[in-house]
Design a protein around this nucleic acid. Sequence first.
DNA 1: GGGGTGTATGTTATAACATAACGGGATGCG
DNA 2: CGCATCCCGTTATGTTATAACATACACCCC
Lengths: 160, 160
Amino acid sequence: MSSDPIGFTAHDHTHCVKSALAAAQAVCIQRGVQMTPVRLRTLEIMLEEHAAMGAYDVLARLNAEGLGSKPPVAYRALGFLVDQGFVHRIERLNAFIACAHPEDAHNPAFMICRSCGTVAEAQAQSGTFVQSAAQTGFQIEQTVIEAEGLCPSCQPQVQP
Amino acid sequence: MSSDPIGFTAHDHTHCVKSALAAAQAVCIQRGVQMTPVRLRTLEIMLEEHAAMGAYDVLARLNAEGLGSKPPVAYRALGFLVDQGFVHRIERLNAFIACAHPEDAHNPAFMICRSCGTVAEAQAQSGTFVQSAAQTGFQIEQTVIEAEGLCPSCQPQVQP
DNA sequence: GGGGTGTATGTTATAACATAACGGGATGCG
DNA sequence: CGCATCCCGTTATGTTATAACATACACCCC
Ligand SMILES: [Zn+2]
Ligand SMILES: [Zn+2]
Ligand SMILES: [Zn+2]
Ligand SMILES: [Zn+2]
């Protein structure tokens, strides 16, 4: 049983990988899309790592297991997982991360620590930005909400 | 006198380039930083174009005028302009765009039309996302707010 | 079984984006 | 002058992403 950080708080992590994989497979069956070995293993890697990974990092892991060595292999698997909502893309980092709560559809938002690189997923709420977009007649299909800063662990301590 | 789209509405555009350049130069003097020829011309290009441009697009324009042909020239000039707030980076597009209202410091937000590529700049307001970030103790330094969708001109018309 | 269709993979090559590192010229200052 | 700093130019390389083409396989229909 491992205890790894998710978000910025520690949590038991071993079982959630397995359950997330099982849930994803169930969703794929329900949607009539295929969770193939490469896609499944890619998702498993993302879940185990539980951190932002570049496509080439993922590719290296896949390659080490004989599942493909060329960029399109990783990009296609990641593209599928992003389309299905199991993985999110972090534009700011040109990287990917497993969804922290894939239960239901959502607009993700991220907090990226510039010091330790940890990425936490939150919910994006519709603020005045979305309202003003609607006012101008712009039809939003997708939003990118990413905040960069310092996570609690990386902030300078006030009292020594 | 030209009339080009800014945001999603037409507007007179000729004079605002000159005034924005003058304003930027004044700000540089005030801050004690140098608005050099390469930087100035880069900003002018961004203002004239008034659209998201890749660094290599900018570089091509600079090169055509003998102002530099190698990537670092463009990236350095753009980096300076971004640091000073005259230009914003669009993460989603790996591109840059001149600030639409550089008068005062602000957190920009963007609406990106996936059909025609137009990018409009809006103001990012602190919504519940920022609040929840504060709750978790995350200290935000910078935000990326980008919406992708269809601009008014590119939406399918309801009535023929 | 043969033939058509669609999806997923594998592979090559290249496009597109970005930076490290070095050297040189201008400027300012003690 | 000697030195620091900033800006610029260039070489080389690193990093991220996709176009384009070929192959494999499952599936359905006849
Ligand atoms: Zn998510
Ligand atoms: Zn941190
Ligand atoms: Zn702006
Ligand atoms: Zn449009």
